[in-house]
Structures are given as structure tokens and as C-alpha cells.
Amino acid sequence: MAAGGDHGSPDSYRSPLASRYASPEMCFVFSDRYKFRTWRQLWLWLAEAEQTLGLPITDEQIQEMKSNLENIDFKMAAEEEKRLRHDVMAHVHTFGHCCPKAAGIIHLGATSCYVGDNTDLIILRNALDLLLPKLARVISRLADFAKERASLPTLGFTHFQPAQLTTVGKRCCLWIQDLCMDLQNLKRVRDDLRFRGVKGTTGTQASFLQLFEGDDHKVEQLDKMVTEKAGFKRAFIITGQTYTRKVDIEVLSVLASLGASVHKICTDIRLLANLKEMEEPFEKQQIGSSAMPYKRNPMRSERCCSLARHLMTLVMDPLQTASVQWFERTLDDSANRRICLAEAFLTADTILNTLQNISEGLVVYPKVIERRIRQELPFMATENIIMAMVKAGGSRQDCHEKIRVLSQQAASVVKQEGGDNDLIERIQVDAYFSPIHSQLDHLLDPSSFTGRASQQVQRFLEEEVYPLLKPYESVMKVKAELCL
């Protein structure tokens, strides 16, 4: 049975990233139509530049190519590739079939990587351009969430054990800070992308030097003109047959890092959902379990974690691919890159769409948070109580021993009897502590235990987050809708 299948058929496997999760716009960027249309555009740009620099290419040939950029006979191309065992030459023939007058000058002087690699770089750039505003929107939604809850005390956790208090907004800023680093890295790697350009079979530009009869300047002009037509500021000066596969490492490393950030955020949300302090959106008709109707599973956060793990592992592909590119190139890269580049971007696209949807509907339960604080705060307040007693004339050592005994009794009630923490009640009825009984409410005010959390939130948002989001103001209103 021949390899390949009808990918629109229910009898043929289709990647869930495309069929179930990723956005239509990201799927289109990695589609065959987008790819092969870009090949034709690159052939047109090459012909236009070659004509401008004096090669015998007519206006009629150029116009014929322009008129057929979208006229792609995919069936013919597939048949040609089956016959020739070469995808680029299959599309040269297919393009030439609908451009008979231009057929002889299509791909003039070029090698397969002229269309293959340059198209990949265009796709990487455009895919990054799709991700950047999506990530900015996630940051914006979380920034709104953090600002609104900047002063809401909550129990902090280290080692997932109760620690000092923080605020809900401050905790959210930990998430935002990681995503801001990801946004900066995505922008950097996007701006650092260079075009492969017009380089020939081993990167020496020998074929173009021959076409222009040894004119170095025209060869350099050709490279520059096509690079500018493709919208790049610069091209690699040095290439082998391909652009260095280190570029793929750079791009997928940034995406993998984004995956790590999203995994951490969504894990926190899942843990908070278990504590009943916070939940992701839950639709009115949504079913959490087929057997347990009360369940409210954090399905979206779980999906993000599941896909983020996949995204983090994909960076190993370009690392290994770059390491086995012998001399000017081997074909070890080809099949692998067809999979890992598309999957990385479709996965990143999915987790950003999902995280935006989550961040637009996060639900906080202040009463649950308050109750958990009441359970733990008495123990945390013991040092403040000791200091207040010393100020009232008591002995630190005597007070410490009193607190120690009462704390152990209260802990026994919590752990052995399943009761509430009654340390404060014990202190309130103990005559030894009568000098500070009137101060206990103040000493137990949760806001006095959150330090500068709310001020940190305000400063972080104003100095770091809002300036970073400013270039994306025009796209901030787009909502994230999930079908599944």
C-alpha cells in the first residue's frame, strides 16, 4: 500500500493539533497551500530580480507567473513527485505547466533550498508574528487579574506546605514575570531571523556568478533584492546548502521555554482548584465526569500541561538535527523538520489560546482563602504575639514557653481530632496574655502579614508589564474561544 493518505478522510490519521486544537490561522501558515504558494512567490521574486539585473526574462513571463501564483494543481504535483521522487522539481514542473512561456526560467540558477529553506524562514517569521500578540493578550488578562487582587491576602506555599502570606495578585505576578520573559525572547528570536537568500547549491553562489558572467556586484544585488522582497532586513552571508540548523534550535528553545512557563502556571491553577481557592472557567453544560456528576475538573489547565510537556520535548529534535548536518548538509534534517517545526508552533498556539481562555474567566473564592488563612495564621502570628507581650512588660522566655504549650495543644486538636485551630481562643482565655487581649485582632490582621506584596504588584505592572504590552494595544480586544 502506498504511503500517505487522504487526510480529510475519517479513515486516515490526522494530527489532533490540526484537527482538534490549533487555530485556523496557525494551521494555514503550515498548510501545503501556504507552503507551495510561497515557493511560487519566491520563484517570481527571483525572476523579477534577475530581470532587473539584466537576464533575458520578459515582462510577459513575469506576468504569467504572477497570474498563476494561486493556480496550484495539487493532484498534478503529487503525481509528479511520485514520478520524480523530488518535491521541488515536482512543483517546478507543475508551475511550468500553467506558465508555459515562463517554464524555462522558473528556478533559474537556484537549488531546492532556495524555495525550501527560504519558505521555512518566512513561515517561522509569520508563525512567530501570530504567537506574539496571543502571548501579549494572556499577559494582559493576567495583569488585569493581578491588579484587581493585588491586596487580597492568601496563604503562600513553599514545598506545598503553608508559608508566609502573600497576595493573590502577587502570586499571579510570578506567572506574568515568566511570560514577559517569554514574550521578550519570542520577539528577540523573531527579529534575529535572517533570510537564507540566493546562495546556490553549497552556499557559494557559483551558479549565479556564472549567470551574471562573473559580476560579483550583481550577485550581491540579486541576494539583497530577493531578501528585501521577502520582507527581511538581512540575509546570511555564510550558508551551506541550507541555512544553519542552529536557527531551528533557537526558535524551538524559546517555544519550549514558553511551554515550561505555561505548565507551571496551569499546575498552580490545578492545585488551587483542589484547594477550592480558584477555578478555571466551567461552562453551564460542561460535564466533569461521566460517573461523578459533582466533579469540576480543571480540564483546560490539564490540557495545557499535557501539550506543554510535548512542546518542551520537541527542542531535542533540532538539537540532534543540527549535530548531524555533515559538511554542507545531509538530508537527516528533512523529514524531522517537516514534523517538529509545525508541531512546535501548533502546540504553542494551542496552549496560548487555551491559557487566554482560562485567564479571561478565572474565578476566585475569597471566603475559602480566608478560612485557610484562619487555619494557619495563628501559628504564624506567634512571633508577633511574643513581641507584643514583651512590649507590655512580659518575659520573652516565659511567653515563648506559654505559646509553645498552647500551640501544641491547638495542633493536637487540628491533627488528632480534625478540629479547627483554636490557638487564639486559648490565648484569649489565658490570664497571662490579658495585657494584649485587646491587640489580638490587630495582630491577626492578614494584611499585616503580606509585606509589600501589593506595592510590588503595582510597581511591576507599571514599570515592566504595561510598557512591554504597549506595541500590542491594537490587538488586545480579541477574545479566545474554545470549541473543545
Results as ranks from 00 to 15, higher is better:
A2L: 10
A3T: 14
A3H: 14
G4D: 14
G5T: 07
H7R: 07
S9D: 10
S9K: 11
P10Q: 12
D11G: 01
D11V: 08
S12A: 15
S12F: 07
R14W: 13
A18D: 15
S19Q: 13
Y21R: 08
Y21C: 12
A22W: 12
M26P: 11
F28P: 01
D32W: 07
R33S: 06
Y34A: 11
Y34C: 11
K35M: 01
R37C: 06
R40C: 02
Q41T: 02
W43G: 06
W45C: 01
A47C: 01
E50G: 05
Q51N: 14
T52G: 04
T52C: 12
L53C: 05
L53N: 07
L53R: 06
L55F: 08
P56K: 03
P56L: 12
I57K: 00
I62M: 12
I62H: 00
Q63E: 09
E64I: 03
K66S: 10
K66Y: 14
K66L: 05
S67N: 12
N68M: 12
N71Y: 01
I72E: 05
D73L: 03
F74W: 10
A77T: 07
A78C: 00
E79M: 03
K82C: 07
K82E: 05
K82T: 09
L84M: 09
V88M: 00
H91G: 03
H91E: 12
G96R: 11
H97D: 10
C98W: 09
P100D: 06
A103E: 06
A103D: 02
G104A: 09
I105V: 05
L108T: 11
L108H: 13
G109V: 02
G109R: 05
T111H: 05
S112E: 12
C113H: 01
D117K: 03
N118V: 05
T119Q: 02
L121Y: 10
L121K: 02
L128W: 03
L128R: 07
L128M: 12
L131E: 14
P133M: 08
L135I: 09
L135M: 13
R137P: 13
I139W: 13
I139N: 10
R141A: 06
L142G: 09
A143S: 10
D144Y: 10
F145Q: 10
E148G: 03
E148L: 02
R149A: 01
R149M: 12
S151K: 09
L152E: 04
P153C: 02
F157G: 01
F160N: 00
F160Y: 02
P162E: 09
T166D: 01
T167G: 00
T167E: 01
R171T: 01
R171N: 01
C173Y: 00
C173S: 13
W175Y: 00
W175S: 02
Q177T: 08
D178A: 12
L179C: 11
L179E: 00
D182V: 06
Q184W: 12
K187V: 08
V189A: 09
R190T: 01
R190W: 05
R194Q: 14
R194G: 11
T202Q: 02
G203H: 00
G203A: 00
G203V: 07
Q205H: 06
S207R: 04
S207A: 12
S207K: 11
F208H: 06
L209K: 01
L209R: 03
L211D: 03
F212C: 04
D215T: 15
D215C: 06
D216W: 01
H217G: 03
H217C: 12
K218D: 04
V219R: 13
L222D: 01
V226I: 03
G231H: 13
G231D: 12
K233T: 01
T239L: 14
T239R: 06
Q241P: 03
T242G: 10
Y243C: 15
V254K: 05
A260R: 02
S261M: 02
H263I: 14
D268W: 01
D268N: 13
R270E: 13
L271I: 07
L271A: 15
L271V: 04
K276D: 14
E277S: 10
E279V: 05
P281M: 12
F282T: 12
F282G: 07
E283R: 05
E283P: 07
K284S: 00
I287W: 08
I287K: 09
S289M: 02
S290A: 13
A291K: 10
M292N: 14
R296G: 12
N297S: 02
C304K: 05
L307M: 03
L311H: 02
L311T: 13
T313G: 06
D317M: 09
D317W: 02
L319P: 04
Q320R: 08
Q320G: 05
T321Y: 02
T321Q: 05
T321P: 07
A322G: 10
A322W: 10
A322C: 02
W326V: 05
L331M: 05
D332M: 07
D333A: 15
A335Y: 12
R337H: 10
R337S: 04
C340S: 14
D349Q: 01
D349L: 05
I351V: 06
L352Y: 07
Q356M: 03
N357K: 04
I358R: 09
S359N: 02
S359T: 09
Y365V: 12
V368N: 01
V368H: 00
I369R: 09
E370G: 13
M380C: 12
A381F: 15
E383L: 07
I385C: 10
R396C: 03
R396K: 01
H400G: 13
E401A: 10
R404V: 02
L406E: 10
S407H: 11
A411F: 03
V413W: 13
N421I: 07
N421R: 13
L423S: 07
I424L: 09
I424W: 11
E425S: 06
I427D: 15
Q428A: 00
V429M: 14
V429G: 14
D430Y: 08
D430W: 15
Y432C: 14
P435M: 03
P435E: 05
I436Q: 12
H437R: 05
Q439G: 07
D445M: 09
P446T: 09
S447E: 11
T450G: 08
G451A: 13
G451I: 11
R452M: 04
V457H: 12
F460M: 00
F460G: 12
E464G: 07
E464D: 01
Y466Q: 12
Y466G: 10
P467H: 07
L469M: 07
K470S: 11
Y472V: 06
V475R: 10
L482G: 04
C483A: 14
C483Y: 04
L484T: 13
